[in-house]
Deep mutational scan, measured.
Amino acid sequence: MAAAAAAGAGPEMVRGQVFDVGPRYTNLSYIGEGAYGMVCSAYDNVNKVRVAIKKISPFEHQTYCQRTLREIKILLRFRHENIIGINDIIRAPTIEQMKDVYIVQDLMETDLYKLLKTQHLSNDHICYFLYQILRGLKYIHSANVLHRDLKPSNLLLNTTCDLKICDFGLARVADPDHDHTGFLTEYVATRWYRAPEIMLNSKGYTKSIDIWSVGCILAEMLSNRPIFPGKHYLDQLNHILGILGSPSQEDLNCIINLKARNYLLSLPHKNKVPWNRLFPNADSKALDLLDKMLTFNPHKRIEVEQALAHPYLEQYYDPSDEPIAEAPFKFDMELDDLPKEKLKELIFEETARFQPGYRS
């Protein structure tokens, strides 16, 4: 834990890192770190609560700039109880001085990944967590956004079992017609939660990839272990087919990539493993919904509104309290091709509203 900075004593240090967030945020305490930044909790002297502050230093890398800009653009436009918001952003007053960006968010005690390492969940908890994931996802999908990296560590939890989806750095506007060349190379989302079509096709992607990830998360809540822990690309596919069985001819016809289709045709026939054999203690309604989410063919996979209306979630289902976005989200430009200098300018502009004396 960093010592509390005395008023006016300059930035606090946390594990050798400068955290320049005073005077409003003090009493910093280390939480963890990701690929390009550290997260601390801090005391907000204005709202009198502890908050989470993520320090991001992305400006050396085009990919990190892209992810940072995506996350900020999306989260500043989203407003939903099951999606983490941005409360404040701290950065230098000029673009030349801006080396880091500090993002202030609600402090959540833990995440689903940490929880599943230590606790076996009751059916009631599984049901409530799944409902909140789908409630947040309904809003995301209504904005025409794909999260693309749903996994237990991106689901934040607090002691009252509130759940918030975080990390929109890989999110995209849904565009089933656009052929994202190089899709697989830039697709760094965790393999275990990846839909089979991501490994088999490169053309376009749809909201059904997020539903697949939610199915993987439900299976993990039922058993405290990942359902498809593939060691590499082909191993991942083999794990999936080992449980779902061989795809039907109709399902194979959806695979545009001939090499991928021929690979699947070359494999020995596998039978589907019954879900109640894998999860003998699970609620039968939970397994019915799991089956509809972990469907090989993305066109037959359940959609988020149908999933919310499934009998497993009937005690929570309330369409009048499951809000959607006001308007579909649009990125003005494809960020993939922009140089990091341009992305830095866009991050600077996007964060201006939090600067003292800002006038829109």
Rank of each mutant, 00 (worst) to 15 (best):
A2H: 11
A4T: 12
A6Q: 10
G16R: 13
Q17R: 10
Q17C: 05
V18F: 12
F19Q: 01
D20R: 03
Y25Q: 04
G32V: 14
C40S: 14
Y43H: 13
N45Q: 15
R50W: 12
V51Q: 03
V51D: 15
I53N: 14
I53D: 02
P58R: 15
Q62W: 13
C65I: 15
T68F: 06
R70G: 09
I74M: 00
I74S: 05
R79M: 14
I89E: 03
I89F: 14
K99E: 05
D100E: 14
V101T: 09
Y102E: 03
V104F: 13
Q105G: 12
L112M: 15
L115S: 02
Q119T: 05
Q119R: 10
I126D: 05
C127V: 14
Q132R: 01
R135N: 01
L137C: 04
R148Q: 13
D149R: 07
P152K: 07
P152C: 11
N154M: 10
L155I: 10
L156V: 04
L157Q: 14
L157A: 09
T160C: 05
L163G: 00
K164F: 09
I165Y: 08
C166L: 09
D167A: 14
F168H: 04
F183L: 14
L184F: 07
L184N: 08
Y187W: 04
A195C: 11
I198M: 03
I198A: 00
N201E: 11
S202I: 13
D210W: 06
W212Y: 10
V214L: 12
C216V: 07
I217L: 08
I217P: 06
S223L: 13
N224V: 08
P226K: 00
G230R: 08
K231R: 02
I240C: 10
S248L: 07
Q249K: 15
N257W: 04
L258W: 06
A260K: 02
R261T: 06
S266K: 01
N271K: 12
K272N: 14
V273T: 01
L278M: 12
F279L: 15
A282R: 11
D288Q: 01
L289M: 14
L290G: 06
T295G: 03
P298L: 12
E303D: 14
E305Y: 09
Q306G: 01
Q306T: 04
A307C: 01
L313C: 01
L313R: 00
E314I: 00
Y317C: 11
P319F: 02
S320H: 01
D321M: 02
D321W: 02
E322Y: 02
A325M: 06
A327R: 08
F329W: 07
M333N: 11
E334N: 12
E341K: 14
K342S: 06
L343Y: 04
I347L: 13
I347E: 10
F348N: 11
T351N: 10
T351S: 15
A352M: 12
F354L: 13
F354R: 11
Q355V: 05
S360W: 00
